[in-house]
Simulated assay, not measured.
Amino acid sequence: MLRFLVALSFGLLFASPVFASEPTLRDYHANANHPDAWQGGVRMIPIHTPAGDFRVWTRRVGNNPRIKVLLLHGGPGATHEPFEVFDSFLPADGVEYYYYDQLGSYYSDQPDDPKLLNIDRFVDEVEQVRVALGLDKDNFYLLGHSWGGMLAIEYALKHQDHLKGLIISNMVSSIPAYNKYANDVLMPELGAANLAELRKLDAAKDYANPRFEELLVPHYEHHVLRRPMAEWPEPVVRGFVRHLNKKVYVPMQGPSELGASGILVDWDRTEDLKNITVPTLVIGARYDTMDPKYMEMMSKRLPRGEYLYLPNGSHCSYYDDQDAYFAGLLKFLHTTDDAKQGG
């Protein structure tokens, strides 16, 4: 079950003021004009889909009229929960941010309908969430991690006129490129005998076999989150194991961690990156499941792209290289904000 991992982030840094004057703790936690205040920032947002109307869960943290970050979690079918580590750092920096469980994820409605499992529908869902939350080009930053990074790229290609900035965290712009990196670089690290056994189990679709997980443990601990799995953060285990919706994950990603094989298998937007003109930060890490050199290349194809390289991080670099991750993220947010104000 732990093969279904992809995760999100952690912060630090006190940067320049982001309010009209030096913000106070009272400013950041003020509840005036927020209809969600009476229930702790939570809103269940109505979503219209081809399969009917449903609701998705969001939660606002803080107030900042110029920097509002919507977080797109990994999976597909995982949850916002690994992002809970943001609570340790973003409030101290004055950043407003929104947790959000996509349709089919644990805190949102979970319709069981294959018509809902396509990336265009997810993009439309994000746009409906944006409208409901009142985010716009003067304050709206979109951060997507792993699958959420795919979704963020697709959203920007269709709706970048609503964006102030974009963050693509630990995700390449091509699933074929990811599969090639996994096949050529990551899987051989397991050793010939272990890899042969894994491929045999994969061919038999014997994913419930405990041996399948045992063989992948070194991969998880080296490339997904660089700690012994017994020490993995509780929000990560909760969001990507206990609360993962396999009815979303398996059809879209595929059942095996030996590369993607589901609905998204042919997804590739590398040639379209040149069309994303908003300020964009691409985050990659040395030990990532995604090729860090490919992510660096992406940043150069983006007209206003920049690259944050994390030398100690893996796919969950917001946990295992968190100081560098959050310093870079917050620098990007404030630099983009300052440039917009100056412009």
Rank of each mutant, 00 (worst) to 15 (best):
T58D: 08
A15N: 05
N63K: 12
V282S: 06
Y28L: 03
L70M: 11
A15F: 06
L12G: 09
P292G: 01
E213H: 11
R227Q: 15
W267P: 00
A37Y: 07
V85M: 09
F19H: 08
F54P: 00
L117I: 06
A193H: 12
A203V: 07
S256K: 06
K300M: 05
H159L: 11
S108W: 04
I67R: 14
P23F: 10
V123W: 09
F4L: 10
A132G: 07
Q322K: 03
R211C: 06
Q253E: 14
L12W: 08
E189V: 01
I153Q: 14
W57H: 13
I168S: 06
E84H: 11
S146F: 05
L8R: 13
D323I: 08
M229G: 06
S173K: 03
N312S: 09
E84D: 10
P114D: 14
L281W: 05
M171I: 07
P279Q: 01
A15V: 06
L330R: 11
Y309K: 02
D337K: 05
V172L: 02
A7Q: 11
L157P: 00
K246T: 14
F54A: 09
D337C: 12
V248S: 04
T49W: 08
K340T: 12
L90R: 02
R130D: 02
H222R: 14
G328F: 00
P35V: 08
L258K: 09
F10Q: 15
L163E: 10
P82K: 03
E234Y: 15
Y318Q: 08
L198S: 04
I263W: 05
M290Y: 09
K180V: 07
R121N: 14
V241I: 09
A92K: 07
H34A: 15
Q322P: 00
K293F: 04
Y100I: 02
D136C: 00
P50E: 12
R66V: 05
K331H: 14
D202K: 14
G328Q: 03
M290S: 10
D338A: 14
A30T: 10
G328N: 02
D323A: 06
D291R: 02
L308Q: 00
G41L: 02
F54R: 10
L2V: 08
A51H: 10
D53N: 15
S16V: 12
Q253A: 15
N275L: 03
E84R: 11
G342P: 00
L333T: 03
Y207T: 02
D202W: 14
N118W: 13
R26F: 09
R130I: 02
N139T: 05
A193S: 13
P218W: 12
T289G: 15
P76A: 12
F240G: 12
L166E: 07
P23D: 11
R3S: 13
L5S: 04
P235F: 03
R130W: 08
G191H: 06
M187T: 01
Y97I: 04
D27H: 11
T58N: 07
K274C: 03
F89T: 08
